[in-house]
Amino acid sequence: MAIVAQSSKFSTYGRPVLAWGVGLLFFFPIFWMVLTSFKTDADAVKPEHLIFFTPTFDNYLNMTDNYDYWRFATNSVISAVSATAFTLFVSVPAAYAMAFNPSRSTKDVLMWMLSTKMLPAAAVLYPMIFLAKSIGLYDTHILIITVLSLINLPIAIWMLFTYFKEIPKDIIEAGKMDGVNTWGEIKEILVPLAWGGIASTALLVFIFCWNEAYWTVRLTTIDAATLSKLIEGNRAPEGLFFGRLSAVSTAAVGPIVVLGWFCQKQLVQGLTFGAVK
């Protein structure tokens, strides 16, 4: 009995305190970044202004002058949005076919697709630079969009496949009996039913594109460079510019973090590849 009583005491007081502690601890670095973004660069490194300081918006107002923020942000938006759209355009029909008309090779095809994701990007880095330069696509949006689409295609197909598989096969068959053709099946049944899944797949692909930091750094110089490249290029090892660096970092991750908050549940479900219910 003692154990039960103890554990209930833990549930009432210990668990919430501990849980909140862990939650705040994990959120702290982000909080700290946001807080620092409102300090001047000078205040940001002074222990006496750790918590008490006069907030300033200058770091945000000067982002364009300091970092040319909007140019990189525009590139990030263009590449992430286009790559997400293209990925979906290719992956929805593929996942639909695999989920509802599986053949004996479907499982192997899916496995193979995921295995391309395990191909180390670095192994093909130079050929990619070589190819891009030789056809004049180096540092262009087209190149970045293509590469981002390709690296996210396997994950998108897997996620969509697991969402589509949740749709009872009976409903698709009922549609067949009722006289829908393939296009009708996608339009009238699949998309309305899997809307949530498609949206969260799109969102996750978008997040991965936005955050990508290998190809976007190595295949661009300036014209198609994204926010990842901007941040990577301003690592500020001497820490003289903590304030402005925090501001531009906050501006780079803010939209995505907020977007993620709203959709976390669906995102997680998709990412488990249907193996966790």
């Binding site: 009976d170 409903i171 068959e173 009996m177 006289g179 049944i189």
Partner: peptide
Amino acid sequence: VPPSKRGLAMVFQSYALYPH
């Protein structure tokens, strides 16, 4: 002949109604 052209109607075990 495809299912819908056979002039048959089917009632499924799970009812297979379109939930939306």
